[in-house]
């Protein structure tokens, strides 16, 4: 059973810029008893997260909302183990996949096939699983013969499709997703949406950070509203989103879509036409 426990988690960001990056200054400051290099000692620390606590179990779909810089992505990265907490504890049980960077480790000089294999290795897959990954991604992204050409020869639409197919191919028990993934849902293709929804529903736990409240309301059964790295409110989506949007003075507050009991899968008949569309920069 997958679980996530965040226990009084705080994360600080040291902002090293200019002189704080310099060894010479640091040595000088130490040698002069901190008089000369005072600015080197005065390092700016930004608090990314403050005292964040929650527990998630199987079946939980958590949405993170908040203004820019509220700490949504920092929290995702902390739960994914990228940032280690400065105070508190993070504990995750279950296989984990965090979709944070659409082009993770993608090398434009390598062929599509090589990039797929590389991503498989990053996920720690064995040879047979990598072969399956290759078939799955090639079929979804419609790469055909391009799979053996370097990625830099791809159209931008193909690169987007490859990145998306790769990111959504591996199904973890704990899925974390940043909003880039859903950006511009108007152009979001049915085929891609189906694949994403299958990924989301296959996961035992979802943590989703998004500005798009319709998606949060549809996909999540719990919402945490972050403000300045603190949990402002934690509860049912309708409630928290209502308060959050009201707080922002937004007029869209009352018109939240209903949650997603049985996802309305659209017919995948127009998929091919839509995928052509994606060559002009769709999907995003």
């Amino acid at each position: 059973m997958a679980t996530i426990d965040a226990d009084h988690v705080s994360v600080d960001f040291p902002l090293y810029h200019g002189s704080a990056r310099s060894l010479k200054r640091a040595v000088f400051a130490a040698a002069s008893g901190g008089r000369i290099g005072k600015d080197a000692q005065k390092r700016v620390v930004v608090q990314g997260l403050r005292d964040v606590s929650f527990h998630l179990g199987a079946g939980d779909r958590l949405g993170l909302v908040g203004s820019n810089g509220a700490g949504k992505t920092t929290l995702l990265r902390t739960l994914a183990g990228i940032y280690e907490p400065v105070r508190g504890r993070v504990r995750v049980c279950g296989s984990l996949n965090a979709l944070l960077d659409p082009n993770l480790g993608m090398n434009p000089d390598l062929t599509g096939r090589e990039n797929i294999a590389l991503r498989g290795l990053f996920a720690g897959l064995g040879r047979p699983a990598i072969r399956r990954l290759e078939e799955d991604v090639r079929d979804f992204a419609d790469l055909d013969a391009f799979v053996d050409l370097p990625v830099r020869t791809y159209s931008s639409g193909m690169v987007v499709r490859l990145g998306f197919a790769l990111a959504t191919a591996i199904h973890p028990e704990v899925l974390m997703m940043d909003e880039w993934f859903l950006a511009g849902d108007a152009g979001f293709l049915d085929k891609a949406r189906l694949r994403l929804e299958s990924l989301v529903r296959g996961a035992e736990i979802l943590v989703l950070s998004s500005h798009m409240h319709e998606i949060v309301a549809r996909w999540c059964n719990r919402v945490i509203w972050l403000e300045n790295g603190r949990i402002q409110e934690d509860g049912a989506p309708q409630e928290v989103l209502g308060h959050y949007l009201a707080g922002k003075g937004s007029e869209e507050a009352p018109t939240l879509p209903a949650p997603l009991p049985a996802p309305p899968f659209a017919e995948a008949t127009v998929v091919d036409a839509l995928l052509k569309e994606s060559d002009r920069g769709g999907l995003r």
């Binding site: 994914a80 504990r91 279950g94 897959l125 399956r132 990954l133 191919a169 199904h171 028990e173 296959g202």
Partner: peptide, 18 residues
């Protein structure tokens, strides 16, 4: 639905404990 090989499974225990 993905091929079963691409479902990451764990054998219990914490995958991450910081």
């Amino acid at each position: 639905a993905p091929p079963p090989a691409l479902r990451l499974k764990t054998r219990g225990g914490a995958t991450l404990d910081l």
